[in-house]
Design a protein around this nucleic acid. Structure first.
Length: 659
DNA sequence: TACACAAGCG
């Protein structure tokens, strides 16, 4: 599949300009077989337009340069195509040259030329110049307004875009009856895109109402944009409602809805919809569909489906699409198959910064920091510039493996060598690393010296470290910050209770429990997923909804008998409940990952790897139990928790009990 | 001859 835009990075120095790179016309010559007269402006216009329409922007600009060398005077039809080609190449330098020429020949106020200029400046990230062109248009039309609104949206200025839309409505009213300035469906698509960027439900609903009032609701592009806008403010069900109400469907709509589900954690729905799209057969799936479906597989650990999609990618010859390729690597990493991810990674010809970062993050989440660092060094050697997320991945990899020195090195050199200011996520990794390595006070000092305001992730890491290293004093400081920042999250109250319990400070524990109860805080329900024969099964804590639940509980009982014979003692501090010891033990038994592991062993052949995905972090007791199960049942068990992978084999875990 | 909507990394 052809990349939608030429691979010239935004803001990169312009290396293409008319007089050098665009000045050979050998390839243009063949087109003159069709348009014979080289002295005719219209022939040149046709050539430039045809090349631009065909997506060959470099050739279009070469033709434009040749035309100028032939001393032919461009007319108003020449410029929009030439400027659009600069826009497609994100070539601001050439775009400015084209603008100068348009000025020289007096075409700047032309509506077609000015709209193309606004589009070009916006896409090249130069909003200031786009706005200057917009402001001097004497009689703006709907395209001028839409181009400028779209320009703000493309540059992440959603609020400005919406504000300009209000101005547009004022002008529409003032020039009442002038067909040139009526809001149309394309304008509404841009406005809805602005709503997506602003992620504001009230605004989206307001624009939705406007869309219905003006009769644009049935327009395909408008419906697609509306679905996206609702999804971005978290209204997945409303997004689906819009999808269901659309009478016309196209590939865009299906792809949007599948992506909405996948990006919002509704992996099962995403894969169901993908299956329905194939079954219906009215729309063809493409690279976009497949990468969205791969994301759903990655989130839910659906390895078998992911592999099928990978086969399909190969059949459709889409392996060279960098986004699809990156999605495949991500899917294999998150489904526990880091070696397969590496093979796919090695086969990819075009790798961009996201591809490299995905591989680094993949090794990191499996605790394989050395390999993550090797990939990172290779990336730098290849000349790919690491970005903000790359450093998060590098530091996270060090953090998962406890590599304090390496993490410090990259944390301190990211600004100096790569001009990337450490952000909250980088600090989060370092605090986590220092805290878990036992340097709890050093982590606290780092937090106090942070340029950015510490968030709940930072304080949460410190609180977790305080639990591991029994530091009650710092735990109380961290917890008080967390209760301010994230008052409804019950996890921190539970953690503090556990810390008090470890220190046998029962009265303090009771006090926190009372606060939890008075605020009506409920624990985030834990769930685990396990894929069996291509179907993903979900288990909640103490789940009794699964068709096999009675058999699973019976089997779990048998497992516990064997565990106790092997010397297992439940770690009761993993649960904070005011109940008798025996009851606490029962609560532990029904953690969702235990149900999922039992279900996996029951339903698969001996020797098969069991893989479980959990939404929360695995607790100490489950970690101990699964280690023992891996030994007693001679099974490899892979658990992906909210933070990382654990590979259990022969009674040991790949995390080395460090997580 | 112009303007819009869908995919990947923490």
């Amino acid at each position: 599949m052809k990349s939608p835009r030429a691979p010239i990075a935004r803001g990169a120095p312009s290396f293409i300009f008319f007089r050098s790179r665009y000045s050979t016309d050998a390839n243009v010559a063949s087109l003159f077989d069709k348009y014979v007269d080289r002295t005719n402006v219209h022939s040149w216009n046709s050539v430039i337009a045809e090349l631009a329409r065909g997506g060959d922007s470099v050739e279009a600009l070469r033709a434009f340069a040749s035309m100028r060398r032939a001393s032919l005077k461009p007319n108003r039809s020449t410029f929009p195509c030439a400027i659009k080609s600069c826009s497609a190449l994100l070539d601001l330098f050439s775009g400015k040259q084209a603008h100068q020429q348009a000025l020289k020949f007096g075409y700047e106020p032309d509506l077609f030329v000015s709209s193309a200029l606004i589009d070009m400046y916006s896409k090249c990230g130069d909003l200031g110049d786009a706005r200057k062109v917009f402001d001097v248009i004497p009689q703006k039309n709907v395209v001028s307004w839409t181009s400028m609104i779209a320009g703000y949206v493309q540059n992440d200025e959603g609020r400005e875009a919406l504000s300009l839309f209000k101005d547009f409505l004022v002008e529409e009213r003032e020039r009442g009856g002038d067909a040139e300035v009526f809001v149309d469906s394309v304008a509404m698509t841009s406005v809805l895109s602005a709503c997506s960027h602003a992620s504001n439900e009230v605004t989206t609903k307001g624009v939705h109402g406007f869309v219905v009032k003006r009769g644009f609701y049935g327009v395909l592009g408008v419906g697609n944009a509306l679905m996206d806008a609702y999804a971005k403010c978290g209204k997945v069900a409303t997004s689906r409602k819009v999808f269901d109400e659309m009478t016309e469907k196209d590939d865009f709509s299906w792809n949007s809805m599948i992506a909405v589900y996948a990006q919002n954690g509704h992996a099962v729905e995403a894969l169901q919809l993908f299956a329905q799209m194939i079954k219906d057969g009215d729309s063809d799936y493409n690279a976009v569909t497949l990468s969205a479906a791969l994301l759903a597989c990655a989130c839910s650990g659906a390895l078998r489906v992911g592999k099928c999609i990978h086969d399909q990618v190969m059949k459709m010859d889409l392996e060279d699409n960098v986004i699809v390729g990156t999605s495949i690597i991500d899917m294999y990493c998150k489904c526990g198959r880091v070696e397969m991810a590496r093979r796919a990674f090695d086969r990819m010809r075009d790798k961009n910064v996201r591809t490299w970062t995905t591989m680094i993050a993949g090794y990191g989440m499996h605790g394989r920091a050395r390999e993550a660092l090797e990939v990172f060094y290779e990336m730098i050697r290849t000349g790919v510039r690491p970005n903000y997320v790359t450093f998060v991945s590098v530091l996270a990899a060090c953090s998962h493996a406890g590599l304090v020195d390496e993490a410090w090195h990259w944390f301190s050199s990211m600004l100096r060598e790569y001009n990337i200011e450490p952000g909250i996520e980088h600090y989060g990794c370092i605090v986590d690393l220092l805290g878990r390595a036992g340097y709890v006070n050093k982590a606290y000092e780092l937090i106090k010296g942070m340029k950015v305001k510490p968030d709940f992730v930072i304080w949460g890491s410190l609180l977790g470290a305080c639990r591991t290293h029994n530091n009650v004093e710092l735990a109380e400081i961290s917890a008080s910050k967390l209760f301010e920042l994230d008052p409804d999250n019950c996890g921190y109250y539970v953690l503090l209770c556990n810390i008090y319990a470890d220190a046998e400070r029962w009265e303090d524990m009771e006090r926190i429990r009372a606060i939890m109860n008075s605020r009506g805080l409920v624990k985030t329900p834990g769930y685990s997923l396990v894929e069996l024969k291509g179907r993903v099964h979900m288990f909640l804590v103490g789940d009794k909804g699964h068709p096999q639940h009675e058999k699973i509980y019976e089997y779990l009982e048998k497992i516990y008998v064997k565990l106790k014979q092997a010397g297992y003692l439940p770690n009761i501090t993993s649960v904070v409940h005011d109940v008798e010891h025996e009851e606490k033990e029962i609560t532990l038994q029904i953690h969702s990952e235990k149900l999922a592991v039992a279900f996996g062993i029951m339903n698969s052949a001996p020797g098969t790897v069991i893989q479980v995905i959990k939404n929360l972090r695995v607790c100490t007791d489950c970690h101990t139990v699964i280690k023992l199960i891996s030994k007693i049942f001679n099974r490899e068990i892979v658990v992906r928790d909210a933070k990382r992978f654990h590979h259990f084999r022969n009674g040991l875990c790949s995390c080395g009990d460090y997580w």
